[in-house]
Write a protein that binds this DNA or RNA. Structure first.
Lengths: 170, 170
DNA sequence: AAGATACGTCAACATGACTGACGTATCTCG
DNA sequence: CGAGATACGTCAGTCATGTTGACGTATCTT
C-alpha cells in the first residue's frame, strides 16, 4: 500500500517481468520443497520394492477409484508402455485390482485392494505430516497463496483435469 | 483475525492434523505445478542434447560462480559419480570451465563459459515467463505465502544451504 | 610423515522414462 | 452389418539418470 498500481516487490520492473531474484527464489524453493517432500516416502516405498512411479499411480487411483487406464495416462503424462509396467507390478503384488468398464467394456477400471489402500494411507500419512507442518508454520493465508501460485503454473488445458480430482471423494 | 488460535480452514481439525483435502490439494498442485514448470525448458535443453540433470548443475553454477564440486554435490544430493558424468558432458560441450581452488588447490571451482551463460540465461528466461505469469495472476501476497509454505517443507538442516544461495549475486 | 580430505574414475546395475510396431476386443456410425 | 476408430496390451530396444563399491591421486592439516 505504498505507491500506486505497481507492486512493491520490484521497483522499476514491469509486472510481467519480475525481478530476477524473486524468480530464482521461487525456482529454488520449488525444487528443494518438492524433492524434500517426495523424499519423505522413499523409505516406505522401498520396503515394498516400489518406486515413485508406483506411488503416483497408487495415489491417483486412491484419489479417484474406478479411474480408467486412459484417464490415469493423462494425469501421469507418460507412455502406456511405462504405465503398463507399473500397473502390472502393482497388480502382481496385490495393491490394485481391475474390472471391465461398465458403460464401455474396452475400458479397464482401476481400484485399490485393501492392501493397496493401507499402503496408500500410510504413505499419505507421512506426506501429510510434512505438509501439515509446513502449512501450520506458514499460516493459513500463506497456504491459499501457495495454492494460487501453483495453480498459475498449470497450463489452461490441464487445469480442468487437476481440478476434477477434487470433490470426487477422500 | 477472526476467532482464536485455530485456523479457519478446518472446523474441528487439530492444526497439526489438517483436513485430508487440503493436504491432497497441496500434493497435487505441487506435483503438477513443479512438473509443468520443469517441462517448460525440455525442448530448449533437447536442442543442446542436454537433460534436466545438466540444467540443475548449470543453474547452480550460474547462481554461484566458482562453486566447488563438493558444494554442488550437497545442493544436488546425488553421488559424485552421477555428477561427474554431468559435469564432464557440460565441459566437453564448452558450457562450463573449471579452475583449481585458490585457497585449497584440491578443490575445483566451477564457472560458466560465455556459451554456458547464454544457455542458462535463455533457460531462465523461459522459466521466468511461466513463473512470472503465475506470480502476477496470484498476486504479491500469494507469492510470499508460496515461499513460506515451501520453506516449511525444507528440513532444518538444509535451510542454510538453500538460503545461502541468495544475495551472492543476481 | 601420517592421515584426512577433495576430487576422479572404472565397473556393474536399477529405475523409469522413451520410440516403434503390432495384436485384440469393443464401440460407433454410415 | 461392416469399416474404422478407440481402449488397452505387449514385444523389443534404447536412453537418462540415478545407485554401490572399490580404488587412485593430489593436496592439506597436524
Amino acid at each position: 500500500m505504498t505507491d500506486v498500481s505497481r507492486p512493491a516487490i520490484s521497483p522499476g520492473a514491469s509486472p510481467l517481468f519480475l525481478r530476477e531474484d524473486e524468480i530464482r527464489r521461487g525456482i529454488e524453493l520449488l525444487y528443494f520443497g518438492y524433492t524434500r517432500l517426495t523424499n519423505a516416502i522413499d523409505q516406505e516405498l522401498a520396503k515394498q520394492s516400489l518406486g515413485r512411479a508406483h506411488h503416483r499411480a497408487l495415489y491417483f487411483i486412491a484419489r479417484q477409484p474406478d479411474l480408467t487406464v486412459g484417464e490415469l495416462l493423462k494425469l501421469l503424462a507418460i507412455t502406456k508402455q511405462s504405465l503398463g509396467r507399473v500397473l502390472k507390478e502393482l497388480q502382481e503384488q496385490d495393491f490394485i485390482l481391475t474390472s471391465p468398464g461398465v458403460v464401455d467394456r474396452r475400458q479397464k477400471l482401476l481400484r485399490l485392494t485393501e492392501k493397496g489402500a493401507e499402503l496408500e494411507s500410510e504413505l499419505f500419512r507421512q506426506l501429510r505430516q510434512k505438509l501439515s507442518s509446513a502449512y501450520v508454520s506458514a499460516g493459513q493465508e500463506s497456504v491459499t497463496g501457495f495454492w494460487h501460485v501453483l495453480e498459475g503454473l498449470i497450463p489452461e488445458n490441464d487445469r480442468k483435469m487437476v481440478f476434477d480430482l477434487r470433490g470426487d471423494n477422500g
